[in-house]
Design a binder for these strands. Structure first.
Lengths: 223, 223
DNA sequence: TTGCATTTCAAACATTTGTATGAAACTATC
DNA sequence: GATAGTTTCATACAAATGTTTGAAATGCAA
């Protein structure tokens, strides 16, 4: 086992470089230079470049999922096993947005790395991502407990849209800021989370009479 | 000018290969083999690999934007310059979803290419994408005409979320299908469009009293 | 210290990649 | 049908990249 400090140095350097410059144009030589270790060290400690990337992603992924489930548990415990739907959705999108948005994001390597993962999509990561489904099912189950009369399809679409809004906000922060000329304050993380959650809650009723009534109400207002 | 058939063959072959295998692992040699032309032909006709990719993307992008604007114009003409908000949003997300979803997607190279563009993100394309903002502003303007009393911020977020849902659906069709065990029918393109539009319309009222009332209503129902 | 396993290192390897070159083939104009 | 411009072709180039190798260094137990 020894000191492991070479291994850690590689992980840290790789995450930093990937976060800053993306997966596309960071070579092993860049990484070992940043980490001040020998070129062969990567293959010695990780086997291959892809396995290094995979380890980085898995580590951060597990952290994210742990945090999500922790918040989900909190939400359900507060309601004696039945969480408020907004809190459940907040547990789903909150950790991502809190991790990847906000003014202090510039200082968190892990955050910027996960943003990269959301923007680019390298095969080594795509393979792992497919295992995320079991994790999401836990949220579907919790949503079902809270809204038992909702059809499954509505729940799936609701979760899908919630993730869509969160991830697109992370991915396209720059475009939204430019488009809105800074009027959309993505640094107000809690505000963004509230907004996403609110829309996601509404999305869950997209097939319902209530929502159709709302749509009609808006149409009237527009006249 | 001459025949241009080499040029076209390269474009067609490149689009097909990129659509099938992604930008990451398609080399110029793969492309020229598929197109039955000489290796040097790519640099002769396009200058560089990146310019070839750029031309492919620009072509498809212009098509998409043209179609969006056509539908937007239709929507506004139907209402004497003021379109129904749902129709405006439909003009925004409809072309993308109609192009990239549905059972016949397997047969359209252009569609699969644009899906790739949504999944992967290569520098050559990212650069061009930033010019999309002017295009989106036209939709903001149309939305503003229909909902003049809405604050700009609400409009920006609404458009952002609409695109988020559409693009994530294109990007993560597979995950949604797996997660829902096929219960979410993404082949029903019109159904998906309706759903996205409906949620997007609701999102536009995320800061309003109406939506807060709806949220409260749902909370009551959940009890 | 000796011996053994782990880790580091410099160097080389083997491909793969986009691009450049210069001659040949082709095309169209006069 | 000669000439000039365009296009095609085989081949070479140069650089980059992940990986391997075998020896040197290091750590550690007996």
């Amino acid at each position: 086992m020894a000191s492991d400090q070479t291994r850690s140095a590689i992980l840290a350097a790789a995450e930093r470089l990937y976060a800053d410059r993306g997966f596309g144009d960071v070579t092993l030589r860049d990484i070992v230079a940043e980490a001040n270790v020998n070129l062969a060290a990567v293959n010695y400690h990780f086997g291959s470049k892809d396995e290094l990337i995979a380890e980085l992603f898995v580590t951060r992924s597990l952290q994210l999922n742990r945090e999500r489930l922790r918040e989900l548990r909190e939400a359900e415990e507060a309601g004696n096993g039945i969480g408020d739907i907004a809190d459940i959705l907040r547990a789903l999108v909150g950790p991502t947005l809190r991790g990847c948005l906000g003014p202090d994001t510039q200082h968190s390597t892990a955050a910027r790395f996960m943003i990269r993962v959301n923007i680019e999509s390298v095969p080594a990561i795509r393979r792992i991502r497919n295992r995320e489904i079991d994790h999401l099912r836990k949220f579907i189950a919790a949503m079902k407990r809270t809204l038992p009369e909702r059809s499954d399809v509505e729940l799936y679409w609701g979760l899908h849209f919630a993730l869509a809004m969160a991830q697109q906000t992370v991915r396209d922060t720059e475009r939204l800021t430019k488009l809105s000329e800074g009027k959309c304050d993505v640094d107000d993380v809690d505000g963004v989370i509230d907004r996403v959650v609110r829309v996601a809650v509404m999305a869950l009723s997209a097939g319902d009479a209530t929502s159709k009534a709302l749509t009609r109400a808006m149409a009237r207002e527009a006249r």
